[in-house]
Design a binder for these strands. Sequence first.
DNA 1: TAAAATTGTTAGGTTAGTCTAATTGTTATA
DNA 2: TATAACAATTAGACTAACCTAACAATTTTA
Lengths: 218, 218
Amino acid sequence: MLSFTEENYLKALLHLTMEIEDKVEAGTNELAFYLGVKPATATDMLKKLKEKKLIQYEKYGKISLSDTGRNKAVEILRKHRLWETFLYEKLEFTWDEVHEVAEQLEHIHSPKLVDKLDKFLGYPEVDPHGDCIPNAKGELKQSFKKTLSEVETGASCKMVAVKDNTAAFLQYVSQLNLGIDTPIKVVSRQAYDGSMEIMISGATINVSQKFAENILIV
Amino acid sequence: MLSFTEENYLKALLHLTMEIEDKVEAGTNELAFYLGVKPATATDMLKKLKEKKLIQYEKYGKISLSDTGRNKAVEILRKHRLWETFLYEKLEFTWDEVHEVAEQLEHIHSPKLVDKLDKFLGYPEVDPHGDCIPNAKGELKQSFKKTLSEVETGASCKMVAVKDNTAAFLQYVSQLNLGIDTPIKVVSRQAYDGSMEIMISGATINVSQKFAENILIV
DNA sequence: TAAAATTGTTAGGTTAGTCTAATTGTTATA
DNA sequence: TATAACAATTAGACTAACCTAACAATTTTA
C-alpha cells in the first residue's frame, strides 16, 4: 500500500512526463519544485521508490516511471478526474473549485468505489477541464495538445483544456468567458513580448504569452 | 487544521462517551484499545489535544471532550454518515461495505463538499445503519443503546460497543471473533441462570448473562 | 578545456505518531 | 489498611517525511 506522499510523487512524475510529447524523464530539481519540496527530500523519496521498483533511477541520472509505477499513477489520475467530474456535475462545484478537493479524494483507496463512481457518472471520457479520464483498464488517450500561443495570427481554434490548474488561473479564464469548446480567434500579436489580441464571442481582448501558453486548443 | 490522527482520537472519544447514557468520560486504556494503539501512545496524544483545548484532561484522570472538541468530532461523524448514505444510496454499496470507505472519506475537508453532499442526498436524517446524521448545525439526536441481554430470543442484532473495558473481558470478546459491527443472533436462553446461546458468523456459542450485559447492540 | 554555474547527493537534525520497558499512581480486596 | 491488581505515565527508540548546509557530479560557457 502506497502512502499519500508516495502517490503524490508518482502522480507528479506522470504529470511531468506527460506534459511534452515524447518526454519520458524528469530531473530531481524539477520534481522537487513541482511538489514544493527541497531537492534533498526528493532524493530520499526517489531511493525509496526505486527500492519499490516504481521508477527507474540511477544516482545523478534522470527519473522515469516503471510500468508498475505508471499504472499506479494513471489510476490516481483516473480517480482525480472522476472525482472532479462528480463534483462538477453532481454537486454544483464550479470549474475552478474542483481541483483542490479532488487532490484529497484521489487518495481514497477502494477499487469498488472507483468503479461504482465511474458507472454512476455514466462512464465519462473527459473531466470538467476537458482532460481525458483514463478508463478502468488504465488506458489513457494521450492527446498532445497545442497551446493558444502556437496558433498562427489570423487563425481560429477552439479551447479544449487548460494546462495550469491553479484557482487563480482558472478564475481568470472564467472571467474572460472562456470555457471548454469556446471558439477563439487570434487577431494580432506583439513581437515585443508575445502578447496577443484574441476574439472570444465577439469581444476582443489582450492576453499575455504566459496566459496563451496555458490554454490548450484544437 | 487537525491531522487525520487527531481527528480519529476525537471521534473515538465521541464514540466512547456516546455509547452509554450519561457517560461523558473515558479512560486512557479504553481509548487506546478502541483505537488499536498502546496506552503510552494515547497519553502522548492526550497531552497534545489538551494543549489544543480540544479535551478536558488531567494526569491520571478521566478524559472528556471540550465544546470545541465535541463540535469537531460531531462534524466528522456527520461526514462519516453522509458518505455512508451516499455509498449506499447512490453507489450500490451494501450496508457492511460502507463503513470502511467512509472511514477514509470522513477526513476530506471541504465545508462546501459536506453541504453540497447533504443537499444532493436530500438532507437525510439517518444513515444506512439507522444511526442519526448530525445536521449542519452540529445537532445530534442521541440514541442510547440496548445490551445483548435485552435482545429477545430468536432476534438478531449487531454489536456496536462494549460496556466493560477490562483487558480480560476484551480479550474474551476478541477470542469469540466478536467486534464492532459483528452480527449476532440470539438462539436460545436458559431461564435458570440467564445464559444464552448466540450465533456469530455461523458458529453457535454459549455466553453468560454477565457477558451479555456488557455487549452493546443495535 | 578549465572555470563557473547548475544539478543532485549526503550528513545530520526535526516533528508526528508509534512502540517497549520501566515506573508511578489509583483502586479494590483480603 | 496494607498490598495486590490495575491504570496511566515517563523514558528512550524507531520510521516517514521533511529541512539546512556542505559537498560532489555534471553541464555550460568563456
